Simulated assay, not measured.
Amino acid sequence: MAQPKPSLTELDPVWHRICEEAEAAIASEPLMGGLIHAGVLHHKTFEAALAYRISMKLASAEMSEQILREIADTALSQASELANAARADLVAIYDRDPACHRFLQPLLFFKGFQAVQAYRLGHWLWNNDRRDLAYFVQMRVSEIFGIDIHPAAKIGQGIMIDHAHSIVIGETAVVGDNVSMLHSVTLGGTGKEDDDRHPKIGNGVLIGAGAKVLGNIKVGHCSRIAAGSVVLEEVPPMKTVAGVPAKIVGEAGCSQPSLTMHQLLNGAM
Protein backbone atom coordinates (compact mmCIF):
# COMPACT_ATOMS: atom_id res chain seq x y z
CA MET A 1 0.00 0.00 0.00
CA ALA A 2 1.34 3.41 -0.94
CA GLN A 3 2.23 5.61 1.96
CA PRO A 4 0.39 8.95 2.19
CA LYS A 5 2.43 11.95 1.11
CA PRO A 6 3.64 14.15 3.95
CA SER A 7 1.91 17.50 4.22
CA LEU A 8 3.66 20.75 3.36
CA THR A 9 3.78 21.51 7.07
CA GLU A 10 5.52 18.24 7.85
CA LEU A 11 8.08 18.86 5.09
CA ASP A 12 9.02 22.18 6.67
CA PRO A 13 10.00 21.56 10.32
CA VAL A 14 10.28 25.28 11.13
CA TRP A 15 6.77 25.96 9.83
CA HIS A 16 5.43 22.81 11.49
CA ARG A 17 6.74 23.98 14.86
CA ILE A 18 5.37 27.50 14.38
CA CYS A 19 1.91 26.07 13.68
CA GLU A 20 2.03 23.84 16.75
CA GLU A 21 3.09 26.78 18.91
CA ALA A 22 0.31 28.90 17.39
CA GLU A 23 -2.34 26.35 18.40
CA ALA A 24 -0.91 26.21 21.92
CA ALA A 25 -0.83 30.01 22.15
CA ILE A 26 -4.53 30.27 21.26
CA ALA A 27 -5.41 27.62 23.83
CA SER A 28 -3.50 29.60 26.44
CA GLU A 29 -4.79 33.04 25.42
CA PRO A 30 -7.99 32.89 23.34
CA LEU A 31 -8.03 36.67 22.87
CA MET A 32 -5.00 36.25 20.60
CA GLY A 33 -6.93 33.88 18.36
CA GLY A 34 -7.80 36.40 15.66
CA LEU A 35 -4.26 37.70 15.32
CA ILE A 36 -2.67 34.25 15.35
CA HIS A 37 -5.14 32.76 12.91
CA ALA A 38 -4.66 35.66 10.51
CA GLY A 39 -0.89 35.68 10.86
CA VAL A 40 -0.15 31.95 11.01
CA LEU A 41 -2.87 29.32 10.88
CA HIS A 42 -4.72 30.84 7.93
CA HIS A 43 -1.65 30.16 5.75
CA LYS A 44 -0.46 26.89 4.26
CA THR A 45 3.24 27.76 4.12
CA PHE A 46 5.88 29.76 5.96
CA GLU A 47 6.36 31.84 2.82
CA ALA A 48 2.69 32.85 2.75
CA ALA A 49 2.71 33.77 6.44
CA LEU A 50 5.91 35.77 6.02
CA ALA A 51 4.52 37.68 3.04
CA TYR A 52 1.38 38.47 5.04
CA ARG A 53 3.34 39.70 8.04
CA ILE A 54 5.65 41.91 6.00
CA SER A 55 2.76 43.44 4.06
CA MET A 56 0.69 44.09 7.18
CA LYS A 57 3.56 45.86 8.92
CA LEU A 58 4.61 47.99 5.93
CA ALA A 59 1.16 48.97 4.66
CA SER A 60 0.16 52.61 4.81
CA ALA A 61 -2.27 55.06 3.27
CA GLU A 62 0.23 55.40 0.42
CA MET A 63 0.63 51.67 -0.29
CA SER A 64 -2.02 49.10 0.54
CA GLU A 65 -1.51 45.76 2.24
CA GLN A 66 -2.87 44.03 -0.86
CA ILE A 67 -0.28 45.54 -3.20
CA LEU A 68 2.56 44.82 -0.78
CA ARG A 69 1.28 41.27 -0.30
CA GLU A 70 1.38 40.69 -4.06
CA ILE A 71 4.94 42.03 -4.22
CA ALA A 72 6.08 39.88 -1.28
CA ASP A 73 4.35 36.77 -2.64
CA THR A 74 6.09 37.24 -5.98
CA ALA A 75 9.49 37.75 -4.37
CA LEU A 76 9.18 34.71 -2.12
CA SER A 77 7.96 32.49 -4.96
CA GLN A 78 10.76 33.54 -7.30
CA ALA A 79 13.62 33.61 -4.80
CA SER A 80 13.59 30.66 -2.40
CA GLU A 81 16.69 32.04 -0.70
CA LEU A 82 14.57 34.76 0.93
CA ALA A 83 12.48 32.33 2.98
CA ASN A 84 15.48 30.09 3.65
CA ALA A 85 17.36 33.08 5.08
CA ALA A 86 14.28 33.97 7.16
CA ARG A 87 14.21 30.45 8.61
CA ALA A 88 17.90 30.71 9.48
CA ASP A 89 17.33 34.12 11.09
CA LEU A 90 14.42 32.79 13.13
CA VAL A 91 16.40 29.80 14.43
CA ALA A 92 19.35 32.10 15.21
CA ILE A 93 17.14 34.34 17.34
CA TYR A 94 15.68 31.36 19.17
CA ASP A 95 19.17 29.95 19.86
CA ARG A 96 20.83 33.21 20.94
CA ASP A 97 18.15 35.36 22.58
CA PRO A 98 17.22 34.20 26.10
CA ALA A 99 13.97 36.17 25.78
CA CYS A 100 12.87 34.03 22.82
CA HIS A 101 11.15 30.83 23.96
CA ARG A 102 9.21 29.88 20.81
CA PHE A 103 9.70 30.07 17.04
CA LEU A 104 6.38 31.89 16.95
CA GLN A 105 7.71 34.97 18.74
CA PRO A 106 10.01 36.47 16.08
CA LEU A 107 7.43 36.05 13.35
CA LEU A 108 4.69 37.81 15.31
CA PHE A 109 6.42 40.10 17.78
CA PHE A 110 10.16 40.76 17.24
CA LYS A 111 10.83 43.86 15.16
CA GLY A 112 14.46 42.89 14.53
CA PHE A 113 13.36 39.75 12.68
CA GLN A 114 10.53 41.49 10.87
CA ALA A 115 12.70 44.42 9.80
CA VAL A 116 15.41 42.17 8.38
CA GLN A 117 12.85 40.18 6.39
CA ALA A 118 11.38 43.41 5.02
CA TYR A 119 14.92 44.51 4.11
CA ARG A 120 15.36 41.22 2.24
CA LEU A 121 12.27 42.07 0.20
CA GLY A 122 13.69 45.52 -0.54
CA HIS A 123 17.04 43.97 -1.52
CA TRP A 124 15.25 41.64 -3.95
CA LEU A 125 13.46 44.63 -5.49
CA TRP A 126 16.76 46.52 -5.74
CA ASN A 127 18.46 43.63 -7.52
CA ASN A 128 15.53 43.40 -9.93
CA ASP A 129 15.85 47.10 -10.88
CA ARG A 130 12.71 48.13 -9.02
CA ARG A 131 14.59 50.82 -7.17
CA ASP A 132 11.74 53.14 -6.21
CA LEU A 133 9.79 50.30 -4.62
CA ALA A 134 12.98 49.28 -2.80
CA TYR A 135 13.35 52.81 -1.45
CA PHE A 136 9.72 52.75 -0.35
CA VAL A 137 10.34 49.54 1.61
CA GLN A 138 13.44 51.11 3.18
CA MET A 139 11.44 54.17 4.19
CA ARG A 140 8.67 52.10 5.77
CA VAL A 141 11.11 49.85 7.62
CA SER A 142 12.71 52.98 9.09
CA GLU A 143 9.34 54.51 10.00
CA ILE A 144 7.82 51.35 11.51
CA PHE A 145 10.79 49.59 13.10
CA GLY A 146 13.34 52.37 13.68
CA ILE A 147 15.90 50.50 11.56
CA ASP A 148 17.49 52.00 8.44
CA ILE A 149 19.02 49.41 6.09
CA HIS A 150 19.81 50.49 2.55
CA PRO A 151 18.31 47.99 0.09
CA ALA A 152 21.65 47.66 -1.73
CA ALA A 153 23.44 46.42 1.41
CA LYS A 154 24.33 42.73 1.39
CA ILE A 155 23.36 40.74 4.49
CA GLY A 156 23.86 37.03 5.04
CA GLN A 157 21.66 34.60 6.93
CA GLY A 158 21.47 33.50 10.53
CA ILE A 159 21.27 37.18 11.56
CA MET A 160 20.13 38.25 15.02
CA ILE A 161 19.49 41.92 15.78
CA ASP A 162 18.55 42.07 19.45
CA HIS A 163 16.23 44.87 20.63
CA ALA A 164 16.72 46.29 17.13
CA HIS A 165 16.42 50.00 17.83
CA SER A 166 18.35 52.63 15.86
CA ILE A 167 20.24 50.25 13.58
CA VAL A 168 21.84 51.86 10.51
CA ILE A 169 23.43 49.82 7.70
CA GLY A 170 24.77 51.73 4.72
CA GLU A 171 24.49 51.15 0.99
CA THR A 172 27.79 49.33 0.36
CA ALA A 173 27.94 47.49 3.69
CA VAL A 174 28.34 43.72 3.68
CA VAL A 175 27.31 41.56 6.65
CA GLY A 176 28.30 37.89 6.67
CA ASP A 177 26.46 34.86 7.98
CA ASN A 178 25.67 34.19 11.66
CA VAL A 179 26.27 37.78 12.78
CA SER A 180 24.72 39.12 15.99
CA MET A 181 24.30 42.80 16.78
CA LEU A 182 22.52 44.75 19.47
CA HIS A 183 20.67 48.06 19.39
CA SER A 184 22.09 51.37 18.13
CA VAL A 185 24.73 49.78 15.89
CA THR A 186 25.89 51.80 12.87
CA LEU A 187 27.67 50.39 9.84
CA GLY A 188 28.33 53.70 8.16
CA GLY A 189 30.66 55.87 6.14
CA THR A 190 33.10 58.52 7.27
CA GLY A 191 32.06 61.41 5.04
CA LYS A 192 30.74 62.17 1.56
CA GLU A 193 32.92 59.73 -0.35
CA ASP A 194 31.32 57.81 -3.20
CA ASP A 195 31.55 54.18 -4.28
CA ASP A 196 32.53 51.46 -1.80
CA ARG A 197 32.46 53.28 1.53
CA HIS A 198 30.91 51.03 4.20
CA PRO A 199 32.18 48.20 6.43
CA LYS A 200 32.54 44.55 5.51
CA ILE A 201 31.56 42.37 8.48
CA GLY A 202 32.82 38.78 8.47
CA ASN A 203 30.95 35.65 9.49
CA GLY A 204 30.24 35.01 13.15
CA VAL A 205 30.92 38.56 14.38
CA LEU A 206 29.34 39.96 17.56
CA ILE A 207 28.71 43.73 17.56
CA GLY A 208 27.81 45.22 20.94
CA ALA A 209 25.18 47.86 21.66
CA GLY A 210 25.97 51.35 20.40
CA ALA A 211 29.04 50.32 18.41
CA LYS A 212 29.89 52.33 15.31
CA VAL A 213 31.90 50.76 12.49
CA LEU A 214 32.78 53.44 9.95
CA GLY A 215 34.37 53.36 6.54
CA ASN A 216 35.32 50.71 4.01
CA ILE A 217 37.09 48.48 6.52
CA LYS A 218 37.03 44.76 7.17
CA VAL A 219 35.96 43.21 10.45
CA GLY A 220 37.41 39.71 10.50
CA HIS A 221 35.36 36.61 11.09
CA CYS A 222 34.41 35.58 14.63
CA SER A 223 35.59 38.85 16.16
CA ARG A 224 33.93 40.91 18.89
CA ILE A 225 33.25 44.64 18.97
CA ALA A 226 32.59 45.92 22.47
CA ALA A 227 29.55 48.05 23.26
CA GLY A 228 30.04 51.75 22.57
CA SER A 229 33.17 51.30 20.48
CA VAL A 230 34.02 53.37 17.40
CA VAL A 231 35.85 51.19 14.90
CA LEU A 232 37.85 53.07 12.25
CA GLU A 233 40.49 50.49 11.34
CA GLU A 234 40.47 46.89 10.18
CA VAL A 235 39.79 44.25 12.83
CA PRO A 236 41.70 40.96 12.46
CA PRO A 237 39.77 37.70 12.72
CA MET A 238 38.96 36.34 16.19
CA LYS A 239 39.97 39.45 18.12
CA THR A 240 38.13 41.69 20.58
CA VAL A 241 38.24 45.45 20.06
CA ALA A 242 37.01 48.15 22.41
CA GLY A 243 37.21 51.89 22.95
CA VAL A 244 37.02 55.19 21.09
CA PRO A 245 38.75 54.75 18.74
CA ALA A 246 38.64 50.98 19.08
CA LYS A 247 41.83 49.05 19.77
CA ILE A 248 42.54 45.35 20.05
CA VAL A 249 42.18 44.35 23.70
CA GLY A 250 42.56 40.59 23.35
CA GLU A 251 41.35 37.46 21.66
CA ALA A 252 37.69 36.88 20.85
CA GLY A 253 37.49 34.53 23.82
CA CYS A 254 35.65 31.74 21.97
CA SER A 255 35.32 30.29 18.50
CA GLN A 256 31.82 31.69 17.84
CA PRO A 257 31.22 35.02 19.64
CA SER A 258 27.98 35.69 17.79
CA LEU A 259 26.53 32.43 19.06
CA THR A 260 27.60 32.66 22.69
CA MET A 261 26.74 36.39 22.94
CA HIS A 262 29.44 36.72 25.63
CA GLN A 263 30.26 40.44 25.97
CA LEU A 264 32.44 40.72 29.06
CA LEU A 265 35.94 41.99 28.28
CA ASN A 266 37.67 40.04 31.06
CA GLY A 267 37.39 36.91 28.96
CA ALA A 268 39.29 38.61 26.15
CA MET A 269 42.33 39.76 28.07
Rank of each mutant, 00 (worst) to 15 (best):
Ser7Asn: 07
Leu11Phe: 02
Asp12Leu: 04
Val14Tyr: 10
His16Ser: 06
Ile18Pro: 00
Cys19Leu: 03
Glu20Leu: 13
Glu23Ser: 12
Gly33Leu: 13
Leu35Gly: 08
His42Cys: 08
His43Trp: 14
Thr45Gln: 00
Ala48Val: 12
Ala48Phe: 05
Leu50Pro: 07
Leu50Gln: 12
Lys57Glu: 06
Ala59Phe: 09
Glu62Gly: 02
Glu62Ser: 11
Glu65Leu: 01
Leu68Trp: 08
Arg69Met: 15
Glu70Cys: 09
Glu70Asn: 10
Asp73Arg: 08
Asn84Phe: 01
Asn84Arg: 14
Asn84His: 15
Ala86Ser: 13
Asp89Ser: 04
Ala92Phe: 04
Ile93His: 05
Phe109Asn: 12
Lys111Tyr: 06
Gly112Ser: 03
Phe113Glu: 00
Phe113Arg: 03
Gln117Cys: 08
Leu121Phe: 07
His123Val: 05
Asn127Ser: 09
Asn128Gly: 06
Asp129Gln: 14
Arg131Gln: 07
Arg131Ala: 04
Asp132Ile: 15
Val137Cys: 08
Ser142Phe: 02
Ile147Asp: 05
Ile149Glu: 05
Lys154Gln: 14
Gly156Tyr: 12
Gln157Asp: 14
Gly158Glu: 02
Asp162Gly: 10
His165Glu: 12
Ser166Phe: 06
Ile169Asn: 09
Gly170Asp: 10
Asp177Ala: 13
Asp177His: 13
Ser180Lys: 11
His183Met: 11
Ser184Gln: 11
Gly189Val: 07
Asp196Ala: 09
Asp196Pro: 00
Arg197Pro: 00
His198Met: 03
Ile201Gly: 06
Ile207Leu: 05
Ala209Leu: 04
Ala209Phe: 02
Gly210Met: 01
Ala211Arg: 07
His221Glu: 15
Ser223Gly: 11
Ala242Tyr: 06
Gly253Val: 05
Leu259Met: 13
Leu265Lys: 10
Leu265Trp: 02
